[in-house]
Design a protein around this nucleic acid. Structure first.
Lengths: 208, 208
DNA sequence: GCGAGGTTGTGAAATAATGCACAATACTGA
DNA sequence: TCAGTATTGTGCATTATTTCACAACCTCGC
């Protein structure tokens, strides 16, 4: 283990996979597992799993394996999902609405605590159990909500201006569903989710 | 250029980014660009862009750069998105509905031609302009539709059984939104889209 | 026609990620 | 107690990916 070296991005991404799998095992009352079980369950190489964990300390016992509950808790702590994470959602369209209704978010401790839009027709309406608020008041609203994470489901034309507001409102990381590159300060991290891009990769593999 | 060597996955993924960006430039009547422009516009290193293209041939002219329209067309051809790609969608819930209504799909030549569900209450209803069909009849339906691509937006508990049907119906690639690993034959390619995992990566970066 | 300035395509170097292999450790049963 | 079997954590070899650096090429203006 070595806390000084920065953790590779692929390791971080796999950590989420492990965590989801461990949650599933816990639900099924599995108490113990080995790295070989991880390989069977997730398709990720057993040595890779052990190496990934080694960035953060020691988690298992030689000859024994890992305790499912402990490992789940410790990975949750590393990923900062051991407590509820408040999340803002901007863009109350079809996709935004679908995300708010997505049961996985709550299950994994991401709670959408505020929904915003720029469209006067949407502002004030209900989206599930949330009131859609005016995106122009997002800074004000987030003084109370104190979210650091935002999900962006606006059309690409609005994405940059909304992003500027989010940064101003104290948002530190953004999950961007708009198919466009966002310009943010160094300190803010953006991850893109692009269905089109996923589909093009798949499309390429047809008949080749 | 070397057609014998298999193209790295990261290259393939970036190809989609280039293609989207080229479409945008075309819309803005830009005729010519250099690899340096790509770096500015997409954040991807200029040499990386040139190397990526080199897997498929020569595209630019030394001293000049690239023709936007030509490059767009040639990348579209490589990705097999130069013609309309028919797509099946299984799972007529919130997320499925949002995807059908997502304008980006049509714009980039992915046309959802059939929607399916297992729930009798949904079968027969309309989703936008599509009739929701019985997933048990998907093979039959796809004999006419001839889609090779499927999007899966069912709950994890149903994912594997639906996947088996999709494979049986001649689907070759699957975009999986269900948060679970799918078991498919060698010849079928699956890509996972997992919001939770994206959020955990972002969450990790809070305050570190 | 030629030099200056710009740009590609690509071999080679540098960097990053993965997977092997093994010492160290733990349990089980005879 | 000890042999046999299982499993971790990690150094190192391997493989994959990115980036550098430069020859080859193109245009323009004088």
């Amino acid at each position: 283990m070595n806390r000084e070296i920065k953790v590779p991005m692929p390791t971080l991404e796999r950590l989420g996979t492990y965590w989801k799998y461990l949650n599933e095992l816990e639900d099924n009352y599995v108490e113990t597992l080995s790295s070989a079980n991880i390989e069977t369950g997730t398709g990720i190489n057993a040595a890779q799993f052990r190496k990934d964990l080694s960035y953060f300390g020691e988690f298992g016992r030689p000859g024994i394996g890992y305790n499912v509950h402990d490992l789940q808790k410790r990975i949750a702590h590393i990923l900062k999902v051991d407590k509820v994470q408040p999340v803002l959602l901007v863009g109350a369209g079809n996709l935004g609405s679908a995300l708010i209704g997505y049961p996985g978010l709550k299950r994994f401790h991401f709670h959408i605590v505020g929904a915003f839009d720029i469209d006067d027709k949407k502002i004030g309406s209900k989206l599930w159990d949330l009131d859609v608020m005016d995106v122009r008041r997002i800074k004000e609203a987030n003084e109370e909500l104190e979210a650091k994470i935002a999900i962006l489901t606006v059309p690409p034309s609005a994405a940059q201006s909304v992003t500027d507001r989010l940064v101003d409102a104290g948002i530190k990381v953004i999950l961007n569903f708009a198919p466009c590159a966002l310009h943010v300060p160094e300190s803010v991290l953006v991850r893109e989710v692009c269905f089109i891009q996923e589909l093009t990769v798949l499309s390429y593999h047809l008949s080749s």
